[in-house]
Amino acid sequence: MKIVRFEQVTCRYDEQTILDTFSLDVEQGERLVILGPSGSGKTTLLRLLAGFVAPHRGTIYIEENAVSRDGRILVPPEQRQIGMVFQDLALWPHMNVEENIGFGLKIKGVGTTERNRRVDTILKLVGLPDFRKKRPSELSGGEQQRVALARALILEPKILLMDEPLSSLDESLSRHLAHEIVHLQEKFGFTLLYVTHRSEEARIVGTRQLEI
């Protein structure tokens, strides 16, 4: 099944055309790596899918439902059930690890005990079992990366977007984490759209590569 579909999408930003009649199909369970020089529209692609920007022309579908069309956002980001790991990770500095990860569940009205259980499980999965009460500023780069991943995964999204998540880490660590991401994807079975400019990462993560 095609879980994501871009149909003749054009996107402009400040008079500059980033994407021009761009079309793309993504299969369920795929790990699509998007490669390209900076300014080529990799990040825009993710932001279009997440619903932060609307395409000027064209339609975007998720599971056959149109979510954005011709300059309008039909389904707002918070209702698209997509997970995303940002380039700067965007961990909320005023919350500890547990609160960061559990935030989405709290919003959905999941009770405290259930929430704690699920946070525990996910922390074990990403290898940070004893970090619940720490603040993001007390964590190393790799640890922060795992927390961001855990926060995205706890809601069990069908699609996960990752925008150069490992760019700030050194090579050996990022290689290690790239393998872990693959491992987690195989376990959860979500569809992954992964933006990077490093070819090695792309090779490890991707089942398919797209150059734009």
């Binding site: 997440a50 932060f52 707002p76 980001p77 918070e78 209702q79 059930q81 997509i82 997970g83 995303m84 940002f86 380039q87 700067d88 965007a90 961990l91 909320w92 935030f103 989405g104 919003i107 959905k108 926060r151 995205a152 809601l155």
Partner: peptide
């Protein structure tokens, strides 16, 4: 950073 709010949006807030 705008990503702070966007990250919350991604978790359904």
């Amino acid at each position: 950073p705008p990503s702070m709010e966007e990250a919350a949006q991604m978790t359904g807030a």
